[in-house]
């Protein structure tokens, strides 16, 4: 008799557990369906496309890794690939220093809650919510060598010699775009850093202050290591953003990375290769997809390694 009761009890528990699993599956279904349709499927299809020969948009025969070979080793393509890749690298390094460095400085300043810091916080964040397309066009106008605000200002303050066709010179075009991007996005890492700094218990800062640490030492020895999780996020996002950089260079320098490919990016190269452009030639889905797959593998691998490495130096705030 006792045994019988036991089994019923166990059955009931098991039934309940199954029901819960079913319920969880039901709740997960919409998210999984969306993920599958809009993330995994396109990724899989890019891999699929990349192993076929394409005549424009018509799929030809299976060619194995020939498209990859063409992208990586064909002299016609790989000089663009190398050029674009190193431009992306430059963008990443420059954004790390300029955008994130500035964001860290701003966050450290704002964390001390100077007069009107709420205003500054909003002011720095405002460009982030603006559309990248609008910002690209707006800055293209600002940087216009003749009518642009930047050169007009420089001339008005007696720095006319500095007035330059910023987007027209291979030496200044990429730098200008990087600064525009920094202007656009600096509020985001600032906010993330600021939140991370606010999460650090005030006591720790005060303890360090009593220990005799200067503001700089407090920033270096206490705040910086304790905001590691935020730094991880920002570094990885900056990395991904830098290697997927598209809108700003597309709007401000065009599909060909003008002038003279000095602002060419992997994203632009992919677009030109896969979809073609009015003057640059016809679309080729095969090599385009191969390039997309390579970019994906590169970004995925490096951001995974970076995340692992950076996470290992994080400390939980108890």
């Amino acid at each position: 008799m006792a045994q019988a009761i036991d089994t019923t009890y166990e059955n009931a528990v098991a039934r309940r557990r199954n029901l819960r699993k079913l319920w969880l599956a039901f709740l997960l279904f919409p998210a999984m369906a969306i993920l599958l349709t809009f993330v995994f499927l396109p990724m899989a299809s890019a891999v699929w496309y990349s192993v076929y020969d394409w005549d424009g948009l018509v799929r030809g025969e299976f060619v194995g890794l020939a498209n990859f070979q063409e992208v990586l080793f064909d002299a016609r393509n790989n000089k663009f690939l190398i050029n674009a890749f190193f431009n992306n690298v430059k963008v990443f390094i420059a954004l790390m220093i300029v955008q994130n460095g500035l964001a860290l400085t701003l966050a450290l300043l704002l964390a001390r809650e100077p007069k009107g810091y709420r205003f500054y916080q909003i002011a720095f964040f405002l460009p982030v919510i603006l559309s990248t397309v609008i910002i690209g066009f707006q800055w293209k106008l600002f940087l216009n060598p003749i009518f642009g605000l930047v050169n007009t200002l420089l001339r008005n303050v007696g720095l006319g010699d500095w007035a330059m066709p910023w987007l027209g010179l291979p030496e200044t075009a990429l730098g200008s775009m990087i600064l525009v991007n920094a202007w656009h996005w600096v509020g985001f890492p600032t906010l993330v850093f600021l939140a991370a700094i606010h999460r650090i218990p005030k006591d720790l800062i005060e303890a360090a202050r009593l220990d005799g640490a200067s503001e700089w030492m407090i920033a270096r020895d206490i705040i910086w290591p304790l905001m590691a999780p935020a730094v991880t996020i920002i570094v990885v996002l900056t990395f991904i953003g830098s290697f997927n950089w598209f809108e700003i260079p597309y709007i401000m320098g065009g599909l060909e990375g003008a002038p003279a490919y000095s602002t060419d990016m992997l994203g632009l190269l992919f677009y030109r290769t896969a979809f073609g452009s009015v003057s640059a030639g016809n679309s080729d889905f095969g090599t385009g997809s191969a390039l997309a797959v390579l970019i994906f593998i590169f970004i995925f691998t490096f951001s995974t390694i970076a995340t692992r490495y950076l996470t290992s130096r994080e400390v939980e705030l108890s």
């Binding site: 006591d203 005060e206 009593l210 220990d211 640490a213 030492m217 206490i222 304790l226 400390v315 939980e316």
Partner: peptide, 26 residues
């Protein structure tokens, strides 16, 4: 002066030794 905080305010990313020696290092 030296102060002991209610929350202890130990630097979580430092070892006990580092915590205790930080002021001296500074």
């Amino acid at each position: 002066l030296a102060m002991v905080f209610q929350s202890y305010a130990l630097y979580p990313h430092m070892t006990v030794f580092q915590n205790m020696s930080y002021a001296l290092k500074v």
